[in-house]
């Protein structure tokens, strides 16, 4: 039979916390979860009183729990923040349209203003149209690159000071692993940071208040609080590489729950030897967004789509950036390489 709550010793425990091993009842769990997020926010000084904060809301469990907890803590501890929801509509029929309905209900439930920015209005392309052109192989690249910028554009339109995202501890650990596996030292170094400083014009600082919250606890928090969230996977195939990292991590977690915190800890304490070559952050000469190349990834991907050369932004084609910028025609050989699409 279930154990008693180890905190209040009165009520029936409803979960075993992966992070601490404690058995807690519903109320003690809610309190512990909320307090830990509060501690994370306070310790890292994520917000200042008077700031306007945009919550990146997808309608999924993480952002729904984030919106709920941010609103609650803002009131409980008088953070003095003005909160709003920002959603990105990627234009995926049967997936995002449904999850946006959830966000619209959240807007009512939490009484927060909502701004939806769509790929179609920003880029002239929906993900449905992109998949039609590029197939199901690199579509997640387009979606990921466009989403990052779309959130910034939405944040600028809403004039928010900061964006917070629902990335949880499992996500961060997965990302550390993936960056190790890909040898991406630049990303490995910054992926565990709880917040980014403003990296340039049009780039709004971001932070992850749920960085130390386990996915299991987020799911159970949403479940026991009966929060309204959307739980369908994207119809355009999951990101395969992340899938492997995820499965590996979950297997490890089932043997040793602290694995997730341990990987984050490793990531946080890595230091990169001096002299390791890092990309230099500059700005895109076309749209002004941060970029380590002459053209930002988003502009290259878009150029590829508009020219019917979908592979332009996939892989390394930096040498072609100058040609694109000066609107020189590509050679036949170059075009052929960029056209072939693997289905």
């Amino acid at each position: 039979m279930p154990a008693q709550c180890s905190s209040c010793t009165e009520k029936r425990a409803v979960l075993k916390r992966p992070k601490t091993g404690h058995s807690l009842c519903k109320e003690c769990f809610f309190w512990a979860f909320e307090e830990e997020v509060h501690q994370t926010i306070v310790a890292a000084e994520l917000f200042k009183s008077g700031e306007t904060v945009g919550i990146a809301a997808s309608g999924g469990k993480d952002s729904t729990v984030l919106a709920h907890v941010m609103k609650l803590l803002n009131e409980r501890y008088s953070y003095g923040l003005e909160l709003m929801l920002i959603s990105v509509d990627e234009g995926i029929t049967g997936y995002r349209d449904d999850s946006l309905e959830t966000v619209k209900r959240n807007q009512q439930q939490y009484e927060l203003p909502l701004k939806i920015v769509s790929y179609e209005e920003l880029y002239g392309w929906t993900m449905d149209a992109i998949v039609k052109q590029v197939g199901l192989k690199n579509n997640c690249t387009f979606c990921g690159v466009f989403r990052r910028q779309a959130l910034d554009r939405g944040a600028v339109m809403l004039k928010v000071d900061k964006i917070c995202t629902g990335h949880n501890a499992d996500d961060v650990a997965e990302t550390v692993l993936m960056n190790v596996l890909r040898g991406d030292i630049a990303r490995l170094r910054r992926c565990t940071a709880i917040s980014t400083s403003s990296e340039g014009e049009g780039v709004v600082p971001r932070c992850k208040p749920l960085k130390y919250a386990y996915e299991k606890e987020i799911v159970l928090y949403a479940y026991f609080k009966k929060l309204d969230y959307f739980s369908t996977e994207c119809i355009y195939s999951p990101n395969a590489y992340r899938g492997y990292a995820r499965t590996f991590l979950k297997d490890l977690e089932s043997i040793r729950p602290s694995t997730i915190m341990d990987i984050i800890h490793s990531g946080e304490n890595l230091s990169v030897r001096e002299g390791v070559k890092m990309p230099v952050q500059g700005t895109c000469s076309r749209c002004g967004y941060i970029s380590s190349q002459a053209l930002c990834k988003s502009c290259v991907l878009l150029e590829g789509l508009n020219r019917g050369l979908p592979k332009l932004g996939i892989g390394k084609h930096h040498r072609l950036h100058d040609k694109i910028l000066s609107q020189q025609p590509l050679t036949e050989k170059e075009e052929r390489k960029l056209k072939s699409v693997d289905f």
Partner: peptide, 15 residues
């Protein structure tokens, strides 16, 4: 791993 199980609304890892 990753699938959560609740028995009578309580985490089965408690049992």
């Amino acid at each position: 791993p990753g699938i959560l199980v609740l028995i009578n609304d309580a985490d089965w890892e408690l049992m």
